Computed example of a mutant assay.
Amino acid sequence: MNNSFLPEPIDQAASIDLSDKLKAYLFNKFPLNDDCTASSFTEGTEIQFWEDFLMNFSNGKDIFNALKECYPSLNFLIDKEIDKAELYNNMLLKGTTNDIKLTSYIKLEDTKNISLELHESIAGKIPVLTIPNNEDFVKILQSIIHKNNPLPIPASMGAVLLNGLNNSKRFNIIKKNWLQNNPFGDWNTEFSNNIMLKKSLYKDKLIILSTKPYSNVTASQLGLEEDLWISYSISIRKEHEFTHLYTLKKYGQATNNLHDELIADYIGIVKTIWNYNKVWMLTFMGLENYPHYREGARLENYVKESKLSPDDFKQLITIIKNAIENIAIFDKAVGKVKSIKDQTCRIDALCEISLIDLASANGAALLIDIYYENFHRTLF
């Protein structure tokens, strides 16, 4: 190993006197998954559904209206406690999407430019829904994630990977086909015994992307031209979500945690500009003027449920800053991403090292060692 890449000693506050809450937050939730095989990344029935869906898609019908058949919540207004209405629950629980008659329904600003595509990622194909208008992006997330309640979507949030999303159209196709083949059968019994537990038959993985500046960071903050930064933002965001898909399939984890986010942002950046830019990363997290934290930045999105004390938060921003510094040293040591194997070995190494270890004085050296061990193991 080239010792010139090893880190200088940095603040070790990350490894001492942590509260129980902060230790719990920093606990590495990526277990070693010895059961993961190539089959974990094979295409399921949902990909065939989306291939057929897109092939049969009518140009006279915008994609948003077509998706209403898949996700009935997209028919309803964004309104407080609308999910308690009888019609809402009947549609979502029973999957009824035909002959919908609503006196009021969700209206978007720019449906014609919403796009849906199947993208090939390092973890297989996945449908990606891109929503250019930010107000529309917020409404669709409120509809799908918050059951049409007007809960706030952080300005720094620009994408989401959804897992286990009920698809009424897929469900209704299964039901229709079974009833045609079993006209005298009991569908309720069939569903309970043979369908309900096979969630992949009717539940989706879906990425929803906006096209706004990444992490709500402006081009001027990074010294870039506006058009170039928007292009970079879309690429970083997409690769970020593909990384979450990979960790979900391999480790069963894609959580709202800073460990996940540092990994996904690292891959997003290096797949976009080929090397890690720690200044960008610090800015994404609101730490460009460390130790000052910029209120409203992305970092706080991932700790809201943890109820950390002000002292915990102060220690956490030191941990994140040091982790970013060590990832930068690691990236310089291993160079540009050369292959899919190289990319996945980097992700695996970042998953296997805890944030506390990554933020320590020898965090970069530990990460480099794990990466090379993983890389060489895949050769044999």
Rank of each mutant, 00 (worst) to 15 (best):
Y372R: 07
M1V: 07
A333G: 03
N75S: 13
Y202D: 01
E226V: 15
T272L: 02
Y290S: 10
I329R: 14
K29N: 10
L287N: 12
T130W: 02
L18F: 06
K278P: 13
N374L: 15
Y290P: 07
D35L: 11
Y232R: 11
I340S: 09
L367K: 03
D79R: 11
S115F: 02
P183N: 11
C70I: 07
W50D: 03
F76Y: 12
N149E: 10
W178D: 10
E43Y: 03
H259D: 03
K341P: 01
A264E: 02
I16H: 12
I114F: 00
V128P: 04
K314T: 13
A323C: 06
Y276R: 02
N75F: 14
Q180E: 15
K321T: 11
S156G: 04
K112H: 04
F30P: 03
P150F: 09
E373L: 08
L228M: 10
I269W: 04
A38F: 09
K250Q: 13
L74I: 11
D20K: 15
I230Y: 08
P150A: 14
E109K: 15
L355D: 05
T189M: 10
L87C: 06
D331T: 02
P7N: 09
F284L: 03
K80P: 01
Y302K: 03
S121R: 03
L6A: 10
S156I: 00
M285G: 05
E46K: 09
P183G: 09
N301A: 05
F64S: 05
N301V: 08
N98Q: 14
N28T: 10
I153V: 15
K125F: 03
L209A: 04
I207N: 01
S192R: 10
M157V: 12
M285H: 14
I368R: 07
M281I: 05
H259W: 03
L262N: 00
K338A: 11
T103L: 13
S215A: 15
L6W: 02
I370R: 13
I208F: 01
N177V: 12
I114L: 07
L151A: 10
T378G: 00
N177I: 08
K338D: 11
H244K: 04
I78V: 14
G268H: 05
H292C: 06
D265M: 02
A66R: 07
I230A: 07
I153C: 12
A13V: 03
I63Y: 04
M55H: 11
K101P: 01
L206R: 05
L26A: 10
I356Q: 14
T97I: 15
K205I: 05
A159K: 00
I140F: 09
I195W: 00
T283E: 09
K169G: 00
S210D: 04
L367D: 08
G44T: 14
L77S: 13
W229Q: 10
E190A: 07
A359D: 00
L116G: 09
D136A: 07
K147Q: 13
L287K: 11
R298T: 10
K176I: 01
E225A: 13
F380L: 12
N177D: 14
